[in-house]
Computed example of a mutant assay.
Amino acid sequence: MGVPLKTGGLFAGSLVMGLALFAAGCQSSDNPTRNVPDVVKPPAVRESELRAYCPGVSLREGTAYFSTYQKGGDGDASKVIYQASLTDTTRACTYDGENVTIKVAAAGKVVPGPAVRPGTITMPIRVAVVRGSEVLYSKLHQQQVPVSNTNAATQFMFTDPAITIPMPPQRNVSIFVGFDEGPEKN
């Protein structure tokens, strides 16, 4: 059994006034052809795309952190220019016949050290796509991040937008993102 509503009183008057203002707001326009907003339909997603394989992306152990020191100061905490870290990763795949194009992204932050100066820093970030021991794609990027506040961390987004590989016949492909300083220096 329902609760009867009063047809008069403050509530009903407010409701009628609110509906009248809403209707008036919807109908007022300088351009009568713009009364109805354009409806944007999202792109259609095919069933094959829902079932398609998009390789996972992860941070390779030992490559999620990166420190830069003043010249000759490696390992000396008082000579740290900045420390950077990659924290989250994601990817998106699109399919074109027999190929898959992958967009890889990683979020990170730069923490200033005692020797930091304002300016733009450059970090070496590598993206590698592998199947077992076979390297399908590998690219070293030079990610630049402007650091203006030397007293606080700066967040950044890294993106490699167009990795194209043949569609894997099995679900055995991995994507790795991480800092890559290159070979050990003597």
Results as ranks from 00 to 15, higher is better:
T94N: 15
D180S: 04
P112T: 02
S58Y: 06
Y65G: 05
R60M: 06
E134R: 04
P169Y: 05
G73R: 11
A23C: 10
S58G: 15
T120W: 00
P124G: 03
T90M: 10
R131D: 09
V80K: 15
P4W: 06
Q27K: 07
M123H: 03
Q155H: 12
T101D: 13
I163L: 05
D180A: 06
V80N: 14
A12P: 01
S133H: 14
V80W: 13
F11K: 01
G2W: 09
E61L: 11
L19A: 09
P37K: 11
D180L: 01
E134A: 13
T89F: 13
M157R: 01
R34H: 13
N99Y: 11
C54N: 09
I125G: 09
R126D: 02
P32A: 02
C54T: 00
Q70R: 15
Q170M: 13
P118G: 04
E134Y: 07
T7E: 01
V45N: 05
A153C: 14
A106S: 15
F156G: 08
V130N: 05
V16S: 01
G9A: 01
N172K: 03
F176L: 14
F11M: 01
P43A: 09
N35H: 09
Y53V: 07
G13H: 00
A24T: 08
Y65P: 00
I163W: 02
S174L: 11
E181A: 11
I175K: 04
G56T: 10
P118I: 11
E47A: 12
K6V: 01
T90E: 12
F66Q: 04
Q144D: 12
A64I: 00
L140F: 08
V145H: 10
E47L: 05
L50M: 11
V80G: 10
P161T: 04
Y69R: 10
T159K: 07
P161C: 03
G2L: 09
